[in-house]
Write a protein that binds this DNA or RNA. Sequence first.
DNA 1: TAACGTTATGTAATAATATAACATTTAGAA
DNA 2: TTCTAAATGTTATATTATTACATAACGTTA
Lengths: 133, 133
Amino acid sequence: MVEKQLNLSKNQRIIFDLIDKSPEPMKAYSILFNVQKKGIKAPLQVYRALDKLVEIGKIHKIESRNAFIACQNSSCQISKTTAFSICESCEKVTEIKDNKLAKYLTNFSDNTGMNYKKYNLEFFGLCKKCKRK
Amino acid sequence: MVEKQLNLSKNQRIIFDLIDKSPEPMKAYSILFNVQKKGIKAPLQVYRALDKLVEIGKIHKIESRNAFIACQNSSCQISKTTAFSICESCEKVTEIKDNKLAKYLTNFSDNTGMNYKKYNLEFFGLCKKCKRK
DNA sequence: TAACGTTATGTAATAATATAACATTTAGAA
DNA sequence: TTCTAAATGTTATATTATTACATAACGTTA
Ligand SMILES: [Zn+2]
Ligand SMILES: [Zn+2]
Ligand SMILES: [Zn+2]
Ligand SMILES: [Zn+2]
């Protein structure tokens, strides 16, 4: 989606490109370290870009890891409904794209009558690779 | 469950009782502040008790808030599968006890064939009270 | 273009959350 | 009693995130 990237500001694009290239979730201070050569020197510059990128759905925060990954789901532009699989051994994280799951959760309503347009689901287990060991 | 509480160590019980009485999730340093009069003086003492209490399922961590609540689900003793409703206005958090949901998620398996015995789901929205305003 | 409001940036300081390392004590089991 | 695992105490430090304030860039429209 080149279009969307064109709308990113300088810092936002630098940081998004870095996260997007990373095979694993990146932590804020690791991002900071990696972009210092590009002139981004302070934590706040990183956190501001992260906040914006999360807001527009280009990246997601993996809450249990305090780390960020690029959205792997092209249809998930303003991503209020997210699901991830996390390997507890190698820490590989994959965004789950499953329409049935999304539908089930979006339609879920609890016994208080509260219903939800937003959720975050994190599954934990062992990935194929780690299971074999 | 008096039985389970009897197994808690001194620090664990002090901290569990505090969280259990709290109407809202508690943060670690707020817990620390509240138990200093009982002799728990250092963050690590709090975090160790929290770790243990989470491990045995007496409390859960609300990942998106870095806060802890007592398990509200008596059957959820070693709680690897958790679901919460979080009000984005007043920050009220409720543990969701819904067997159908639990079954659905426990049986969920993604397209990689990975399956999961553990998950954490956080729903966001407005509670009844906040919706009225 | 000029003026305006909004968004983004720069910088320093500090707050909030969490862990490492090491010594000692306590509680149970053998 | 002796041994071991779990829990505690203490200090220091690492990691994650925000406050406060000043400046610059951008996009709109008069
Ligand atoms: Zn996504
Ligand atoms: Zn793995
Ligand atoms: Zn529970
Ligand atoms: Zn509310």
